[in-house]
């Protein structure tokens, strides 16, 4: 299974997809509902020393320790702390669950396949590989994100950094 497949949106009959819509900065994003395990309020996040910058820390979710990423940092937005609307969206990544902080979760919605356009025409830059498409809902544009890919890339980067560090130490 390629990474792209794993993030493919699950489409229901009639050319519809179900997404969880959330906001980050001024924009509205959507992720495939199948990749979301749970949405929880912000809770105490304990920082992990030497973790990469975009890792906010770890939380206790019913006895499990779960790493939490800050999507704002990932996208280069300014940090935002203490907003009661913020949520942690839990996403499965391989055998792990990983939390992603978003500004607020607006709704679960159905969008029609026809309203989705490929990202190439609208977006440029690094984020493009994480964007599956842009959906038009009324006047709004919803950026459909492949969170699973974001996380797996973040994982790879972290592990690579750890290896580099280890190599340096061994010298």
């Amino acid at each position: 299974m390629s990474i792209h497949d794993s993030g493919t949106l699950s489409s229901s009959s009639g050319g519809e997809r179900q997404i969880v819509a959330f906001s980050l900065g001024q924009e509205t994003y959507g992720v495939d509902i199948a990749s979301v395990r749970e949405i929880i309020p912000i809770q105490k996040i304990v920082p992990v020393p030497r973790a990469p910058d975009f890792v906010e820390g770890i939380i206790n979710l019913r006895g499990r320790v779960i790493p939490v990423l800050d999507l704002r940092k990932q996208f280069g937005f300014e940090e935002k702390k203490g907003d009661p609307n913020q949520r942690i969206v839990l996403v499965e990544s391989g055998e792990d669950s990983i939390g992603v902080i978003v500004d607020s979760v607006s709704s679960v919605m159905r969008i029609s396949e026809d309203s989705v356009e490929p990202p190439a025409s609208v977006v440029v830059g690094n984020e493009i590989e994480y964007i599956q498409g842009i959906a038009k809902v009324g006047e709004d544009l919803i950026v459909l994100l492949d969170l699973t890919k974001i996380i797996s890339d973040a994982e790879k980067r972290t592990l690579r950094e750890a290896d580099l560090r280890a190599a340096v130490v061994h010298e």
Binding site: V48, P49, P67, L159
Partner: peptide, 19 residues
């Protein structure tokens, strides 16, 4: 002792987490 998942598994000097 709890695992922190793959992403944080290889940080130098960090052995894991607990609650």
């Amino acid at each position: 002792v709890k695992e922190m998942g793959r992403m944080l598994s290889r940080l130098k000097g960090i052995a894991g987490a607990t609650i």
